[in-house]
């Protein structure tokens, strides 16, 4: 009987001690918020387009960091962003549902614009300038191509144009050898395509 008593007492006492130490450690190493949100947010293209089903990049990052959302919902980011997020979160990559289209720019046909300011209100990055009853125009350097301004326009005067390719931004393609393609297939395999 004393054996059992000793056993319970020592085990319980030891567990209590460990609990107290851990409780103190919890205070010392308390983590404020989820530091992963910012890290995921940093990987997103910040188009604020809402194609992921969340109202913007930050909310999607929050959902991903909380493991509530899959890593493959960012359409403009494409495969590269998906891989980066999967890598950061330590989860299996998943195929991107929708191929990322070529980068686009919104363009206002100014002679048709009636100056209603609805697109200005819709633009998530303040890239449209104009005033009521004045022509609006879109700053090409700041447009993320999110298409959020197309829908509200009452006269449909906003076009989505393909972003012009600049020679300064040209970069070398992969060499066209069989082995280089092998390497790329491997990458796609990792991305869950194969």
């Amino acid at each position: 009987m004393t054996g059992l008593f000793y056993a319970l007492l020592s085990l319980g006492g030891f567990a209590l001690l460990a609990g107290v130490v851990l409780a103190i450690a919890q205070q010392v190493f308390h983590v404020e918020g989820d530091p992963m949100v910012d890290k995921v947010d940093n990987l997103l293209p910040q188009t604020q387009c809402g194609q992921c089903g969340y109202p913007g990049c930050k909310p999607y990052a929050t959902a991903v960091a909380a493991l509530e959302a899959e890593v493959n919902h960012c359409v403009p980011g494409g495969e590269r962003t998906m891989l980066a997020i999967a890598d950061l979160m330590g989860v299996e990559p998943k195929a991107v549902e929708q191929e990322a289209a070529a980068p686009m720019l919104a363009f206002v046909r100014e002679d048709e614009c009636i100056g209603c300011t609805l697109c200005i209100k819709a633009c998530p990055v303040d890239a449209i300038i104009g005033a009521p009853k004045q022509y609006h125009t879109i700053l090409a350097d700041h447009c993320t191509g999110c298409e959020l301004c197309v829908e509200p326009c009452p006269v449909d005067c906003i076009d989505m144009l393909v972003k012009p390719e600049l020679i300064e931004h040209w970069s070398w393609p992969l060499p066209k050898t069989r082995r280089s393609q092998l390497g790329h297939e491997r990458r796609e395999h990792h991305a869950g395509h194969a």
Binding site: G3, S10, L11, F14, A18, V21, F29, H30
Partner: peptide, 28 residues
């Protein structure tokens, strides 16, 4: 105390506490 038969459970308790500790530390 003659409690050698509690070895495993004691050791796991120690290890679990240590792991909890390092987990908090790494998270921070």
């Amino acid at each position: 105390l003659g409690l050698e038969y509690l070895q495993t459970i004691f050791f796991i308790l120690i290890i679990a506490a240590l792991v909890q500790f390092i987990e908090m530390m790494i998270h921070k």
